[in-house]
């Protein structure tokens, strides 16, 4: 198997699942002939036709709204929102309807749809193309919010999302789309949603991150390990909602220290919830206060300054070293 980027991995997952299950379709702006602005849906329209790879009019709320109808009537739509910055127009339908149909009708009408969207900074784009607002979705009961970090996990988590019986918001860290390639198994195996992934085991400190920040954090950890000879456990959160309290608690009980690295702004970001979970489940095991490295509570700056908003190598290093030294 050749090495693949995340873009290729997601594209492959869509190809395979549409081949396997004819109720799966993709829809969104420019996803057909153009293959999506990031080419995630490349080739799908050629292979499956315009009816199953739908170039929609430009209206985010109707994209998810019609996808809800399709899902109610037996399809499994995978809708793409071009950038997460435009996805807030889907929030009304997501919170008001997609998230509620199952409960509203006691399981009679369900909405198995996936809302895919690239998010996060680092691509020198215009305003609204760089923020990390996973909290909006994670705070919606009835919806699962997933963020993959690697080609292999993006492939498996997307298969898991499509096969899930409920709405899933699938946020793709666009900075990682083509940042690296990875050895890859395209075996059609889905990954269970709701589980964090232990990237590397360790005993001295737990570091939790997700999306593009995971890779920056990995680099920091290599240096910290080299410099201090410590053993670091790195967790890829993957599932923002539901959150894997068990894996987090087990790790912190073992290490007694934790640092969380998130690209999203500070207040009420996923890190806040992780700290609460540690408080609930592992407080008495802590040997140092839990630290979080996050964006600030400011509007996402244009890209000339965005490097100061996104957690830097230096900030992550300081947080880990301070927590180790406490």
């Amino acid at each position: 198997m050749p090495k693949l980027t995340m873009v290729q991995a997601i594209n492959l997952a869509l190809h395979q699942e549409m081949e396997k299950d004819e109720s799966v379709l993709v829809m969104g702006q420019d996803i057909g002939k153009n293959g999506g602005v990031f080419r995630l849906t490349d080739g799908l329209q050629d292979k499956f036709g315009e009816d199953r790879a739908i170039d929609t009019p430009l209206a985010e709320s109707a994209i998810i709204g019609s996808a809800i109808g399709m899902a109610i009537n037996g399809l499994k739509p995978v809708a793409e929102i071009q950038f997460s910055g435009f996805s807030y127009l889907t929030l009304g339908q997501l919170e008001g309807n997609a998230a509620r149909f199952r409960n509203r009708t006691l399981g009679k009408f369900t909405v198995p749809l996936v809302l895919r969207m690239p998010f996060g900074g680092g691509v020198r784009a215009l305003e609204h193309h760089s923020e990390s607002k996973e909290t909006y979705y994670a705070h919606t009961a009835g919806v699962k919010t997933i963020i993959p970090s690697t080609p292999q996990t993006a492939y498996r988590l997307l298969l898991g999302a499509i096969r899930d019986p409920d709405p899933v918001v699938f946020m793709e860290p666009k900075h990682s789309y083509r940042a690296f390639k990875e050895e890859f198994e395209a075996d059609g195996e889905a990954m269970e949603l709701g589980k964090a992934r232990i990237v590397q085991e360790g005993t001295d400190i737990t570091v939790i991150s997700w999306g593009a920040m995971l890779h920056r954090t990995e680099k920091v950890i290599e240096d910290v390990v080299d410099k201090h000879g410590v053993s670091v456990e790195l967790i890829d959160l993957q599932s923002i909602a539901p959150m894997d309290a068990q894996t987090i608690a087990d790790s912190v009980k073992k290490t007694g220290r934790a640092v969380i690295v998130q690209e999203a702004q500070k207040t009420l970001g996923p890190a806040s919830e992780i700290i609460s979970l540690i408080n609930d489940n592992a407080l008495m095991y802590l040997e140092a206060p839990v630290k979080r490295v996050t964006g600030y509570d400011i509007v996402m700056p244009y890209f000339a300054r965005e490097n100061n908003q996104i957690p830097s190598i230096e900030r992550i290093t300081d947080a880990i070293e301070e927590t180790l030294a406490f």
């Binding site: 199953r52 998810i64 709204g65 809800i68 109808g69 009537n73 037996g74 008001g96 309807n97 009408f109």
Partner: peptide, 25 residues
């Protein structure tokens, strides 16, 4: 028969999607 829709107009895209699925099949 779909349930009541309380958010005004939000049910209309659902109708379009339901119709699309029927037509596709």
């Amino acid at each position: 028969l779909l349930p009541l829709a309380v958010i005004l107009g939000s049910q209309i895209p659902h109708a379009v999607g339901i119709a699309y699925a029927s037509k596709l099949r």
